[in-house]
Design a protein around this nucleic acid. Structure first.
Length: 554
DNA sequence: CGATCCGGCGCC
DNA sequence: AAAGGGCGCCGGATCG
């Protein structure tokens, strides 16, 4: 289906399994209503240009859909798989490529926009397919059929189809989550800020920050020093005879100087004040809900990003303001040790997978191979997955290599491929972007010279990136499949997902639905493991807590 | 002057 | 314990 430009209407058509037309084109004046009716009738899979562009408007009109195929997200996945990462992905671009026409650039992403801006038309996109100079519905048919063909040609078509389904479902969840919003008590937030910072001042920092600034100046014997200017702080330490390379908290913590304690406290509070203080609350919290804009697939690894609001990094200290509605509860589910478990599943290391059948993977590994030293086992694993090169992890890494050579070699191989400017893929087939060196060799203009994730820096940095990519991207896929499964399980109840942070999902539900939601979450985790990895010994346990306030989780 | 870079830190 | 992966956001510093 496609919307009309800047209006409320649109066109719909049934498609066959191969993407060809299987019915007449229907023009409707009320597209949201037509979609709602059809959804109620037979729950089709909606093929549309972009969930991010269309679905928020449907939700505002009170229409939810069960399944979709997101052409834009799928196009990006297929481009990446073909080694052409980053080429334009919009319907217009996909159609042009298919027809051998000049490929238009994608429209720039919208600006982050705090909620409360009125929508003129239901579907307002002025640059999207609706306003294009071609038959958008025809383009949907063509591009969809072509994508189905290209899907079949991927390395593991079954897995890639799951990836496309999960990515599309994730886009639905992201829009629904942004629509629902996270329950947020502005009054408690204000109270918390006052406890931490003192009352807000008409101009300038709140009282506690001013006090700390004075303490820091007193400790340095200085006047007018800005604690939030790293350069000034480094110079002040130098005058006091202390050489520090920077002012990072973990560096300062090792320094013995009276300015350190107030500086560390200042950093913590300053961050809360600027990033999650009163101004943030005014901008992003309305009607008792924090409504960020999620960007499913916004990170190269497939993790979600957000546009504004910082929903993925709500400081622990302010989570006391996240309180369930009266008579409602939060079910907070967190996948413990997700990334090492994913490594166990994808590497095919049977011994490692056996250890990952346990509830505490680190403890199991420690008992087997690290003389019971759980901390050492954890350091070794994290070092292996992130590409640590020095420090205390080195001997631990050696133990890991000796005891779990298959898993170890898996990440080592990914690193070598990256260092040689090659491409690596997740389990389902999401492909990492090429290195800038590879782009140059192909005669393409390398992206921003200093993007380290693409390997603009050293080959070793590229190796660390690809090493981590295979694990992080697969973990993101597991989480996406969990979300999609849970979403289906929650249909027909009042429960709704209100927060998702990489490996953690929060469901807001009436108290009498808690039991059912907890069961659904556990089942969804098991299903996600099965859908991705089939018959594996690896388990993906969830830590689940039921709380009235998010801060009380775990 | 605005645009952009960068240090720093929040989260996973 | 050390400082390795991925982000977003803020303000200061710097550039044009």
């Amino acid at each position: 289906m496609v919307p009309d430009a800047g209006g409320r209407g649109g066109r719909l058509q049934d498609l066959g399994a191969d993407g060809t037309a299987a019915g007449p084109v229907r023009s409707v004046a009320d597209l949201a209503g037509a979609i709602g009716d059809r959804e109620a009738a037979d729950h089709p899979r909606w093929v549309w240009p972009s969930t991010a562009e269309l679905y928020p408007a449907l939700l505002r009109a009170g229409v939810r859909v069960g399944r979709c195929h997101d052409l834009e997200l799928t196009e990006a996945l297929l481009s990446g798989h073909a080694g052409r990462w980053g080429e334009p992905r919009a319907l217009a671009a996909a159609r042009a490529r298919l027809r051998g026409l000049p490929v238009p650039a994608d429209p720039p992403p919208r600006q982050a926009e705090p909620p409360g801006f009125a929508q003129a038309a239901l579907f307002e996109s002025s640059t999207g397919p609706a306003a294009a100079d071609f038959d958008a519905l025809e383009a949907v048919r063509e591009v969809y059929a072509d994508q189905l063909r290209r899907l079949a040609l991927t390395e593991h078509p079954g897995r890639f189809r799951l990836l496309v389904a999960a990515e599309s479902a994730g886009a639905l969840v992201g829009a629904e989550m942004g629509h629902a919003g996270l329950p947020w008590r502005a009054d408690l937030h204000d109270q918390l800020m006052r406890e931490l910072l003192g009352p807000p001042q008409p101009v300038g920092p709140p009282r506690r920050l001013a006090e700390l600034t004075a303490e820091i100046n007193a400790a340095f014997g200085s006047w007018g020093l800005h604690p939030d200017s790293p350069a000034e702080v480094v110079r002040a330490f130098a005058r006091a005879g202390v050489d520090v390379p920077n002012t990072r908290a973990w560096v300062l913590r090792k320094v013995d100087h009276p300015a350190v304690r107030p500086l560390l406290e200042y950093k913590e509070l300053y961050r809360i004040w600027t990033a999650h203080g009163w101004a943030w609350c005014d901008a992003w919290v309305s009607d008792g809900r924090f409504r960020p804009e999620y960007v499913p697939g916004g990170v190269v690894s497939g993790r979600w990003a957000t546009r504004g609001g910082g929903a993925l990094q709500v400081p622990k200290a302010v989570r006391r303001a996240v309180v369930a509605d009266p008579g409602w509860q939060f079910v907070v589910a967190d996948a413990g040790q997700l990334e090492p478990r994913v490594l166990a599943a994808i590497s095919g290391d049977a011994r490692f997978a056996a250890a990952a059948a346990a509830g505490d993977l680190y403890a199991e590994l420690a008992a087997n191979s690290f003389d019971g030293d759980r901390a050492k086992a954890k350091v070794a694993l994290i070092g292996a997955m992130y590409g640590q090169t020095g420090g205390a992890a080195i001997p631990a890494l050696a133990v890991l290599r000796n005891h779990y050579p298959t898993a170890f070699e898996f990440v080592e191989h990914a690193a070598r491929v990256g260092e040689a400017n090659g491409l690596v893929r997740s389990w389902l087939g999401r492909t990492c972007p090429p290195s800038s060196a590879a782009l140059r060799d192909a005669g393409l203009d390398p992206p921003e010279e200093s993007d380290p994730s693409l390997g603009g820096a050293s080959g070793r940095a590229r190796g660390r990136f690809t090493r981590n990519f295979v694990v992080q991207a697969t973990a993101a896929e597991w989480a996406l499949v969990l979300l999609a499964t849970l979403r289906t399980a929650l249909e027909g109840s009042k429960a709704e997902m209100v927060l998702f942070v990489h490996d953690e999902v929060v469901v807001h539900c009436p108290a009498d639905e808690v039991e059912r939601v907890v069961a659904a979450v556990h089942e969804s985790a098991a299903t996600a493991g099965r859908l991705l990895f089939g018959d594996t010994a690896v388990r993906f346990p969830l830590d689940v807590s039921t709380v009235g306030a998010y801060a009380d989780a775990k």
